[in-house]
Write a protein that binds this DNA or RNA. Structure first.
Length: 482
DNA sequence: ATGTCC
């Protein structure tokens, strides 16, 4: 059954609340014609409509142009719920809690790096553990885990893995308050014990890039970015730890649905009222997993820096390898938003969506107040990634949110099928000029550029719709993957 | 995303 959808303008579409039984509000999708044609191929519009049935949902369910099919909610969804009448759903955060992106800048230029690119990428690949189930150099036990889970990236910095300055330019300073280590299951501890400081697999990567194009010189300047400059983009999350937290609480909430009299079109939307004990426990555990992910990206930052220092024989000062910003794109947060002229505290679920707070917002680091919050949008391995900034438009329309990536057009299985007999590693080097090292046998096939939408199309829609602004385009030259 | 099935 096709979902009825009406076009509002060049970049906005609407699924009316009478499209499906149980919808409480409309669903709004940001896309142009070309992206909408790609979106129609999977269940994501159905899932966007389903998300509008969640109890206590405020104003509308939103979907970004990189939307694709996920568990329960589509990936690329933004759903805000009311703390009194609303629910929290783990499917609205995703399995990889605080999957996110961190951008590092350097003082190096393309000309300096290209002659030593292979040495650099090989060094990164040798130093940073990649792949499924890999172990890192940091060990957590139930006894010593409390600190990183409560303090996030700060804990890593205190262990000597990074600089205090790194925390200034991370979303929430790399730590969300309200983590409850006691709400995390023994199994999650077991899975997360040896995985701090590991990249993971799937679409996770560490990429060496060059600043290829600047759209907003003033904002780029504030971010410390210039043409021809080498940057590093890290995409990773909370590994098996967050995955287990999600698994545990989906089960707990599914069991509790009857108790709270919640009716859903899809069991994958399992949720409980925000005021319930299940919801409090989930949020405590989710925040612990979010802090695990920020600690993880901090560890990866430190080791990437060490490799750069060794390869280029530069002092930390001359290398200038600072954190530009770090965003969470799978998380639920309590935030203040204006709804119908009234300020309200809401739980904003962002699943495959990035916070995009406008200039002047009090949660931004002072040095970025004038330009708005940096938004990091990774694309595919071959083409490009983007830095955007948040806008007043996002605050008005999408609870301060924008896109998070390119979005898949092929399932993993379809991508492997389409890449059969092809040497993706060679193609990346020959046609895109990207030197890549990967540990998984099929990971390059799953992640090949044509398995994704063109991220340029995605960010252009967000820019033109006014929910973020394009600042810089980054071109990959080297990559390590799981 | 993920000890890609406890």
């Amino acid at each position: 059954m096709a979902i009825p959808i009406e076009r509002l303008d060049e970049y906005r579409w609407r699924i009316p609340p009478d499209a499906k039984p149980g919808m409480r509000v409309p669903a709004i999708i940001f896309a142009d014609e070309k992206l909408m044609d790609q979106i129609r191929h999977d269940l994501s519009l159905e899932q966007a409509a389903n998300s509008a049935t969640l109890p206590g949902i405020v104003r509308a369910a939103y979907a970004m142009p990189d939307i694709h099919q996920g568990y329960g909610l589509p990936i690329g969804a933004v759903v805000a719920t009311d703390p009194e009448t609303g629910v929290v759903t783990p499917g609205g955060v995703g399995y990889d809690i605080n999957c996110g992106v961190r951008l590092l800048r350097t003082e190096l230029t393309r000309t300096e790096v290209l002659p030593r690119l292979k040495e650099l990428v090989n060094g990164l690949f040798a130093t940073i553990p990649t792949g499924v189930g890999t172990q890192g150099k940091v060990r957590l036990t139930r006894e010593n885990a409390r600190k990183p889970l409560e303090q996030g990236a700060r804990w890593a910095v205190e262990q000597g893995l990074g600089e205090p300055e790194d925390l200034v330019t991370a979303e929430a300073s790399g730590c969300i308050a309200g983590a409850d280590p006691d709400a995390v299951s023994p199994r999650a501890y077991e899975r997360g014990r040896a995985q701090l400081g590991t990249l993971g697999s799937g679409n996770h990567f560490l990429e060496v890039q060059v600043v290829e194009k600047i759209y907003d010189e003033q904002a780029a300047n504030v971010l410390g970015l210039f043409p021809g400059q080498v940057t590093v983009l890290i995409h990773s999350g909370s590994r098996g730890f967050g995955h287990q937290v999600c698994t545990d609480y989906l089960a707990s909430m599914e069991r509790a649905l009857k108790k709270y009299g919640i009716q859903l079109p899809d069991r994958q939307l399992a949720c409980t009222p925000l005021r319930s004990e299940e919801a409090s426990a989930y949020l405590g555990a989710m925040r612990a997993a979010a802090n695990y992910a920020w600690t993880n990206r901090q560890c990866l930052t430190h080791w990437a820096r060490e490799v750069f220092q060794q390869v280029f024989r530069k002092s930390p000062r001359d290398l200038g390898m600072w954190v530009v910003y770090d965003v969470a794109h799978n998380i639920a947060k309590l935030e203040e938003h204006e709804v119908d002229g009234k300020k309200r505290r809401l739980l904003v679920h962002r699943k495959g969506a990035t916070r995009a707070f406008p200039p002047g917002h009090p949660e931004l680091p002072e040095r970025y107040r004038s330009i708005g919050q940096p938004v990091l949008v990774p694309g595919d391995m071959g083409r490009a990634s983007f830095v955007l900034v948040g806008t007043d438009g996002a605050m008005r329309e999408t609870f301060g949110s924008t896109c998070h990536g390119a979005g898949r057009v092929m399932s993993r299985a379809a991508a492997i099928r389409a890449a059969r007999g092809r040497a993706i590693e060679r193609e990346l080097e020959d046609t895109h000029g990207v030197y890549v090292r990967a540990s998984g046998r099929d990971s390059l096939k799953e992640e090949m550029p044509e398995a994704y939408k063109n991220v340029q199309d995605v960010v252009t829609v967000c820019h033109n719709a006014g929910i973020s602004r394009m600042v810089v385009k980054l071109k990959p030259i080297g990559c390590i993957k799981g």
